[in-house]
Structures are given as structure tokens and as C-alpha cells.
């Protein structure tokens, strides 16, 4: 039972990530390996804030913002949408500058937990669209393969940046919710319940937003056919930026949720993201419900294999993808229609 609960909490986090991965993949064809870095950045930024330190991720955001602005101006000044690029460039640099200025010189690290969470989100979430602008937008038409290699390269850059910003040691945060509940023989921590609830909520919100809002519909349209979507007025750039914002939001929230349950290190991201990927692959990188379900299964496999055979836990977990691939290769043979 306890194992199931443990697996469920981790599975919920993986499910969130799996959703973000599927979203990013279907809309932009990017296999977004650095998703895990949003988790570690979120968690460690919050951990530093709780120690009363203004995290260096703000500066990272600023640096990325400046690069994005430079790129935007470089390409924008020669295109007819000059005014738009100037606005965007000002946004890219202005927001991080304002944020870091106020954090360093005025507010400092807030003492209140809610404010800490808000500041964390304010730092991490804009990283999503900015990174999209800097790294992926200039090669949006490249093949899946090239985008994947770029994603891996970005993962390395972010991991190196993480080591710079947070150092080699891990961070933990105090639980957002202190309460523990005794249910029969087992203790359920408030935090794990909160994690479950928050992930469910976020999944539901994403799902509804996708189904019912105009933006959501536009994103789905882009996922189906980017040329068609452009014709009806959704630019792939905007769609990509929205996707990455959502991905960063999901990552940061996951990081905040998980950071009090476990210790997070600058290099934790990859493994977490990969576990999300296994879930996403169970959903054939296309189906949201299947992906989420797959991620929950991953959480269970992890919990039970650590119980029975902890030394080979990762080996079992990652080998479990092989039967899935076998099943997929029987049911979804390649039609060869990728470019």
C-alpha cells in the first residue's frame, strides 16, 4: 500500500512531465529532453529562496533574455514586422531586468512561502518561451532528428548552468503543507496528498484549456498541420512559445511539488525527464490520457522494483521500455512519412 502511494506520488509528477513532453512534441516536433531541467530549476530556486538567497537563475533568465532580444532584433529589423520585434525584444530584456533588479535591490528573498512559490514561477516560467526563441525558433523547420540533438545540447547547457547557479550539492525545501494523516496503519503526508491533488488539478486544467479555449484549439490545429494552422492565422512561432511556457510552468510546478519530498540536484533533471518519456512513449507520443497512465505505471514499476531489487531498479525501469517498443512496432509500424 505504502509502495503504491509512493509510486503514485512519483507517477503523478512523471505524468505531468509526460503531458508536457507530448504537448511540446505534437506541436513543435521537439523531443524536449531539457524538460527535467525546469523541474530542477524550479525546485532549487525555491530551495535557495527559502534560505534567503536570491537565486542566480534570475541572472540566467536575464542572459537568455538578452540573447533572445538580440536574435529577435537581428531577424526582425529586416522583416516587415519591425514594430512587433522591437516590442518583443523589449519584453525579453525588460522583464528579466526588472525582476532581477527588484529581487536584488528591493525585495530580496521573500519570507512568506506563497510569495516564494510565486517568485520561483516568475523566474522559471518565462525561461520557456525565451529558450524557445533562442534555440528552437531559428531552426523550427529542421528535422525531428536535428531538433532532438539541439534539445540534448540545450539540456547540457542548462545542466552546466544549474551547477553554476546551485553548486554541486542538493537542495530540499520544507513541506508546503505540514500535516500528516494516519489512515489505518499508514501515515500519509500532507505533502504527498498535495502533490497528487495539484498534479490532478493541473492535468485537468490543461485538458480543459486545450479542449475549450481558442488558444488551445489553435495549438491543436498546429499539432495536426502547421501549414494549415498558419493559413487560419496561428503562427507556429506563437504556438511554440505558448507550448514552451506551458512546459516550463509544468516543470516548475513539478519541481516545487517534489522538492520537499526529496533532495534535488543540479543533474537530477535528465532521469526525471526520461521517466516522463517512458510514460509518454506508452502513449505513443501522441495520446494524452495514455501518456499520463503510462507515467503512473512508471511510478509503480519504480516503487516496486526498488522494493524487491533495488540495485537493478533503473535497469528494470529502463528495460521495461523494450516490450513497449515491441508492442508499438507491431501496432504502429512506420509509414515512413516523417521528413
Amino acid at each position: 500500500m505504502l509502495l503504491t502511494q509512493d509510486g503514485l506520488v512519483n507517477g503523478a509528477i512523471y505524468a505531468l512531465l509526460a503531458l508536457a513532453l507530448i504537448l511540446v512534441f505534437t506541436v513543435t516536433r521537439i523531443i524536449f529532453v531539457p524538460q527535467g531541467e525546469f523541474v530542477t530549476y524550479g525546485a532549487l530556486t525555491l530551495a535557495l529562496l527559502q534560505q534567503g538567497i536570491v537565486p542566480a537563475t534570475v541572472l540566467l533568465l536575464l542572459a537568455a533574455g538578452v540573447m533572445a532580444a538580440a536574435l529577435e532584433l537581428w531577424s526582425g529589423l529586416r522583416s516587415p514586422h519591425r514594430r512587433r520585434s522591437v516590442t518583443l525584444a523589449m519584453l525579453y530584456t525588460g522583464y528579466p531586468a526588472l525582476l532581477s533588479y527588484s529581487l536584488y535591490y528591493h525585495i530580496g528573498a521573500p519570507a512568506n512561502v506563497a510569495a516564494q512559490v510565486l517568485v520561483t514561477l516568475a523566474i522559471i516560467v518565462p525561461l520557456g518561451p525565451i529558450l524557445y526563441r533562442v534555440v528552437f525558433q531559428p531552426m523550427a523547420n529542421a528535422s525531428v532528428l536535428v531538433l532532438l540533438i539541439a534539445a540534448v545540447a540545450l539540456h547540457l547547457v542548462l545542466m552546466g548552468g544549474g551547477l553554476l547557479a546551485f553548486g554541486p550539492e542538493g537542495g530540499r525545501t520544507s513541506p508546503l503543507i505540514q500535516a500528516n494523516f494516519d489512515v489505518g496503519v499508514m501515515t500519509v503526508t500532507g505533502q504527498s496528498l498535495a502533490t497528487l491533488a495539484a498534479s490532478m488539478l493541473l492535468i485537468a486544467v490543461l485538458f480543459l484549456a486545450f479542449r475549450h479555449t481558442l488558444r488551445g484549439k489553435a495549438l491543436r490545429a498546429t499539432a495536426v498541420n502547421s501549414v494549415g494552422a498558419r493559413l487560419v492565422g496561428v503562427s507556429p512561432e506563437t504556438a511554440g512559445a505558448i507550448c514552451f511556457t506551458l512546459a516550463a510552468l509544468v516543470g516548475a510546478v513539478s519541481g516545487i511539488l517534489i522538492s520537499s519530498i526529496t533532495t534535488i540536484y543540479f543533474d537530477t533533471g535528465l532521469l526525471i525527464a526520461l521517466k516522463g518519456f517512458i510514460g509518454a512513449i506508452m502513449g505513443a507520443l501522441g495520446s494524452y490520457p495514455l501518456g499520463a497512465l503510462g507515467a503512473l505505471v512508471v511510478g509503480q514499476i519504480e516503487a516496486f522494483s526498488s522494493f524487491w531489487w533495488s540495485a537493478f531498479k533503473e535497469a528494470i525501469l529502463f528495460a521495461s521500455i523494450l516490450p513497449i517498443l515491441l508492442w508499438l512496432s507491431i501496432t504502429h509500424p512506420a509509414t515512413g512519412d516523417e521528413e
Binding site: 526520461l274 512513449i281 507520443l285 529502463f318 528495460a319 517498443l325 509500424p333 509509414t335
Partner: peptide, 12 residues
């Protein structure tokens, strides 16, 4: 499978 499963499979 289509191309992107090989890299993912090999990572795992």
C-alpha cells in the same frame, strides 16, 4: 517505428 523512437529507445 518512426525515426524518433530509436534515439529514445537507445537512451533508455
Amino acid at each position: 517505428l518512426s525515426g524518433h523512437y530509436l534515439p529514445l529507445g537507445t537512451i533508455c
